[in-house]
Nucleic acid binder design. Structure first.
Lengths: 118, 118
DNA sequence: TCAAGAACTAGAATTGTTCTATTTTGAGGT
DNA sequence: ACCTCAAAATAGAACAATTCTAGTTCTTGA
């Protein structure tokens, strides 16, 4: 529960940050307890795990609405974006090679406003 | 050059596999030489590096045609798919939050024909 | 031929995550 | 209340991919 709350409170946080958040509300929690909880929660579909290139895994509780992510190449800032194409469209690849596709993960890479200034 | 050839010969291979490929054509190459070469090549845009969740980095030389990937959740098999939406459309997120977007990375997750049978 | 910079090597170091063995906790039954 | 058993937590080791570092070897231009 504490882990779930921490994920809710810090969207797109790393396991480490979430562990800190959980500790803030409960006291002591081991790293592994957090990993276990995160693992179970994302397995059950209650939270989502994203693993952008060049960073550790991030977790969020916004789930089931087919939204995507926009990540800054310089500072790593991550924001949600709604699916450009509506509903859950991306699930149709042009040619599926016989695969049964169950998810389309979209990551937009770019530069955030702050980093553009600098 | 040997590294580039190895990437060409084994699309979607890991750094390790590419190192083996390079060694097969040249003799001995250190792991770091390979990482250096891969780093420079992808920095210059000659090859592309993809880092799917739960696997190490993969490299490919098909570049600049806005294609995406379809990965099997069970066996990790990776195939190319052309962009569902044509040209380079995905570059437009519904709302860009002020970011300067330069790439849209799409990964379709599913089950390959072989794993569906099993 | 020589010097200077680039690339290469080997091996240690780092980081995020997972594994394993041991301990603690909590629920149900007596 | 007490005991037992399973589930969850702990601590710390283990692991794998990648990066860093220091020293050596090549290559190229003068």
């Amino acid at each position: 529960m504490a882990v779930l709350e921490a994920v809710s409170a810090h969207p797109h946080a790393t396991a480490d940050t979430i562990a800190e958040g959980a500790r803030a509300s409960i006291g002591t929690v081991s790293k592994q307890a957090v990993y276990n909880a995160l693992g179970t929660l994302s397995e059950k579909g209650i939270i989502r795990r994203i693993q952008p290139a060049g960073s550790s895994a991030l977790y969020e509780d916004r789930v089931g609405d087919n939204h995507h992510h926009l990540i800054c190449r310089s500072c790593g800032k991550t924001v949600d974006v709604d699916c450009a194409v509506g509903g859950s469209p991306c699930l149709t690849a042009s040619h599926d090679s016989g695969f049964a596709i169950d998810e389309a993960e979209v990551i937009y890479w770019g530069k955030c406003p702050d980093c553009r200034k600098a």
